[in-house]
Amino acid sequence: MGQQVFQNEYFTVLVDERMGVVRTVRNDKPFASIEELDVVFAQLGDALDALGRARYGLLADLRAGPGRNDPQFEAAMLRLRPRWVGGFRKVGVLVRSTVGLMQIQRHGRHEGDERVVSKDEDELLKYLTQED
């Protein structure tokens, strides 16, 4: 789906102009350190900024990502998540498990962001492409 506009060791970013959706795909490589998160999310954030976030819905595909919820990681992601998902018209998060779904929903409630979390890609694409 879409044209690849960015890739690093952890993420691939694809843009579907026709649908108005940016897809960030997390791969299965674990982060080596918390410090590495800052570098990775700076790169990812710069790539997303260059697209003009407000024009798009974001589909964050986390299905391949390794599960992690230790306190240091959670604190770093709380700080870095806005650099990833902030500024998009709508945000949908695609997960592979119920545990992942519950974790992302918990983040959304804590952070006050509106995002739809699902294991169903078609449901998320429908949400991201429907007019407000």
Rank of each mutant, 00 (worst) to 15 (best):
G67M: 13
D49G: 11
L48W: 00
D28G: 14
G57Q: 00
D120H: 03
R53I: 07
T24M: 09
E114G: 04
T98W: 14
V5F: 04
E123Y: 10
A47W: 08
R106E: 11
R83V: 10
R53K: 11
V22E: 00
Q130E: 15
Y127A: 05
F73Q: 08
Q7Y: 03
E74V: 13
D16C: 05
D120S: 03
E35F: 09
D113T: 14
A32F: 07
F11R: 03
T12M: 03
V95I: 04
R106A: 15
G108E: 08
A64Q: 14
K29C: 06
Q103R: 09
F6W: 02
Q4R: 15
G57N: 04
L58W: 05
V116Y: 05
W84L: 09
R68Y: 13
F6K: 03
V91R: 08
F6P: 01
L94E: 00
E9Q: 14
L94P: 00
N27P: 04
V5T: 05
H110D: 15
T129V: 11
L128R: 01
Y127D: 02
I104N: 11
G87S: 04
R53V: 05
V5D: 03
R109D: 12
V117Q: 01
G20T: 03
R53W: 07
E74M: 13
V95Y: 00
R26L: 08
G86P: 02
V85P: 03
G20R: 01
M77S: 04
P82T: 01
W84M: 09
G86K: 02
L78F: 14
R89D: 00
E114K: 10
L125V: 11
M1Q: 10
V40Y: 04
F41P: 02
T24P: 02
V91H: 06
G100P: 02
G87Y: 02
K90I: 07
G100N: 01
V39W: 13
G57L: 03
K90E: 03
D122W: 08
K29A: 12
L44M: 09
R109Y: 14
E121A: 08
R96A: 15
R106V: 11
S118D: 01
R96F: 10
V91N: 06
E131C: 11
V39N: 10
G45N: 05
K29S: 07
E111H: 08
E9T: 11
L125G: 05
V99T: 13
V95R: 00
G92L: 01
F11Q: 06
Q3W: 12
R18F: 12
D38R: 09
M19Q: 14
A32Y: 06
M1E: 10
L101P: 04
R106T: 15
